[in-house]
Write a protein that binds this DNA or RNA. Structure first.
Lengths: 225, 225
DNA sequence: ATCTCTCTTTATAAAATCTTTACGCGATCA
DNA sequence: TGATCGCGTAAAGATTTTATAAAGAGAGAT
């Protein structure tokens, strides 16, 4: 995630301005709030990807606000503060702050720390699964289910099925399948394919004689639907 | 994870001593290394949960070492440095450092930042125990119980079981398991896995010949259910 | 030192998987 | 008609992978 929605909660207009410009010139979208109340409202109506939170707010202590945020907000929160007291830093970090920067801070460092926490926060786990009727192929777990029952597949069977399923609807030629699964030296071994396609159909099709998932394209290859 | 295995890489013995005492008195286990080479070897043979890395090492720049770690090591790395240069901070964070502390630092703050990155690193925040049938794995106490009776596991056995259990349902490949438990130099040692899986099954399965918790995916890896 | 506990290494049997062979079916075409 | 070709299926065999026991090595404790 390169560009993020960032909420700045700080009561000093100059700081907000400064931060705003620095962040926007780096492609981020910025929302500003001057008080704890405003900040909470802004965050709950449009949850940002990251919050920059000043500890010194007029209406509520930053620590208390941080705790309230952490009851529901799990994205990064970076604390900005003029206080360099160890107590404050420890309290903030233990209350779930992602980082703590002491004012005055250097813009470059702030931006680097923002990149750092954003990078860490977005290990976008692509829960990729492929469904086709009662068949479910879970690419993360490396598991295949039919009617919610796990089907045992060998390594080669799974690779073949996954390759076909990832290219749902497309015809994959014998050559291509053999090259991908067995390696470039096996492009002539069409019989391997017949054997393994038959195995797969026996395991995943309701009626292996009338396959609905793995279709034969005679003389060309196979297609997954 | 409250107690972590922490590797300190720093060439100054006094600093290592100081850190060691502070960390150990907080329940962590500590390994020390005085050079980049030593550090890399220590991390490769027994991957720690966190690395404290000094930027100034006699045999290799800390930045270069950080990059080499990040090629395979995904746990937190906190940089310690006397340098307060913005360039260094930005470079370190962009190279994958989890945090950057300037010496001299306050022990309390360091501990808080360690807690912070460890909390972030283990997405099992709320998942402190894993249940599967009569089996209970307590990730906080590092204990495993079957039918309410504690099972004695060695350190390696526990690490392996915990890693599998944290990824319940997913197939973990031999390569991945070996890299995480033994280090990147052991990815070829599949026999280690077979031996330890057999040990685990003897201890946690009702019938080791018909395992229900640790399943074999022939040619691929193992899966915990 | 000796014992104990754990990890590493070796050996071997068993299980699982892959490869190869054989044969039947249906379509196509001379 | 019958010969050929591509495909599906079953099953034998060859090979790889796994399970298990047990010996050897190393570290730490008594």
């Amino acid at each position: 995630m390169n560009k993020a929605n960032i909420l700045i909660i700080d009561d000093e207009p100059q700081i907000r301005k400064l931060l705003s410009i620095a962040l926007q010139s780096n492609g981020h979208r910025v929302t500003e709030a001057a008080t704890a109340k405003e900040g909470m409202i802004a965050a709950s109506s449009h949850p940002p990807d990251l919050i920059l939170l000043d500890l010194a707010l007029p209406d509520e202590s930053g620590h208390s606000l941080l705790k309230r945020f952490r009851e529901w907000y799990s994205h990064p929160i970076i604390i900005l503060s003029v206080l360099n007291s160890e107590q404050d830093i420890i309290a903030a970090l233990d209350n779930g702050a992602s980082d703590y920067l002491t004012k005055p801070f250097r813009t470059g460092e702030l931006l680097a720390r923002i990149r750092s926490v954003l990078r860490r926060a977005s290990p976008s786990q692509d829960q990729q699964e492929i469904r086709s009727g009662s068949l479910l192929i879970d690419l993360v777990q490396r598991a295949v289910k039919k009617n919610n029952e796990t089907i045992k597949l060998t390594a080669t069977e799974y690779s073949l099925l996954a390759l076909l399923a990832k290219n749902e609807g497309c015809v994959l030629t014998h050559q291509y399948l053999l090259k991908e699964i067995w390696g470039p030296g096996f492009v002539k071994e069409s019989q391997y394919l017949r054997v393994f396609i038959a195995q797969l159909r026996k395991k995943i099709e309701e009626d292996p004689n009338r396959p609905v998932h793995i279709l034969t394209e005679s003389g060309v290859g196979y297609r997954f639907l």
